[in-house]
Amino acid sequence: MTLWYENDTPCIAAHEFPAALIDLACSRDLEPDRLLRGTGIFMADFLSASLIIKPVQCYALLRNIQRLMPASDTAFLAGHRLFPGNFGPASTALTQASHLLDALQTLENYSALLSPLLQPRLSLDSDFVYLYWQESCEASDQGAFLRDMLMTAITSLSRQLYQQSLPWEYFLPGELTHPEQYSVNWGPRVYSKRHITAMRLPRELATQNTPMATTSAATIAKRQCEVLFKDKPSEGFISHIDQRIRRSIPGHVSLESLAQALEVSPATLKRKLKKHHTHFQQRYDNVRKELAIEWLTRQELSVEDIAARLHFHDSRNLRRAFKRWTGVLPSALSASV
C-alpha cells in the first residue's frame, strides 16, 4: 500500500472535489469546452461519475477557473458549495456529525477525498481547536485560492451544523488582497500578516452538540468511509514529507535520512521533490518555520529553547533564519499575539 499520492497519481474522483468548481463555472454560464481546455477532462466523462483525475489536472482546472472568472469572490463561491457536496458517506459523516470537532476529524482523516490539494491539520490545546492548512500535493501558485476556498467551506459547514455563524478566527500570511470578501464571508476576525494559514475556534464551541445530528447515521457513515478508504493513500506527497520531517524533529533530519525512511534513493527523492516544484531545504525550512511560530505563539517558548529544539547553534542564528523565513524577527510575532 502506498502512503501518499503524487501529482500524477490518478486519485481524485472528478465528481467529488472538482465538481464544486465545475458546477460553479456552469452556474455562471461558462462554456464547458473553455473551462476544461487543457485539463484532459471531458464533460461526458465527468458526468459519467466514474472519472478519476490526477492532481495536475485539478490544478489546471483551478487555473482555468481563475482565468475565466477573475472576480475576487470566485474562491469563496466555490467554497460555499463544497460541503456537504457529493462525497458519498463522507458527506453524511460531515453533516450528521455530533459536534463540529467530530466533523473536522472526518475532514482530517479523509482529506485525500474532501480536500485533496490542501492538507488540513487539526491541533488541540486546552482552550482552542486549531485547523492548519498546508500545501498537500504540490507547491503551486494556487495556494491562496485553495485556502480561501477551503476555509470558506469549513465556515459554511459549521454554519450548516449549528444554523448560526461561529466565531472562527482566521490567520493568514501576507496582506489581504480583498478585505471585503473576507469580511463578508468570514466575518470580522480575520488577521493578516501572521505567516501561517490557520483558523481557530474556542474548544467548548467546537465540542457542543449540534442540534440536528443523528449519531447512528454519522457512526455508520464513518465506518463506511473506513472500509472504502482502507487501502487508499491518505495524503499528498508534500504533506507526507512535511509530516515526516515534523515527526523527526527534535532529532536530526536530512535528505538522506528521509530517503532511507521512505525506502528510496536520495536521487529518487530529489527527483520526486523536483516534480512537485519544491526541494528538501524548502520543506525543511517550511516545517521549522511552522513549528517555531507554533511554539512562539501558542506555547510561549523562549527563542533560546526553540533554537535548541531546531538545532540552531544559538538564538542569534535562529533569529536570522526566522527573519529569512518570515521577514520579521521572532519578537515581532510573539508581541503581536
Binding site: 471585503e180 469580511s183 463578508v184
Partner: peptide, 10 residues
C-alpha cells in the same frame, strides 16, 4: 445616491 455591491450579499 450611489449603490455598490460590497461583496457577497452585502
Amino acid at each position: 445616491d450611489l449603490v455598490c455591491r460590497y461583496a457577497g450579499d452585502r
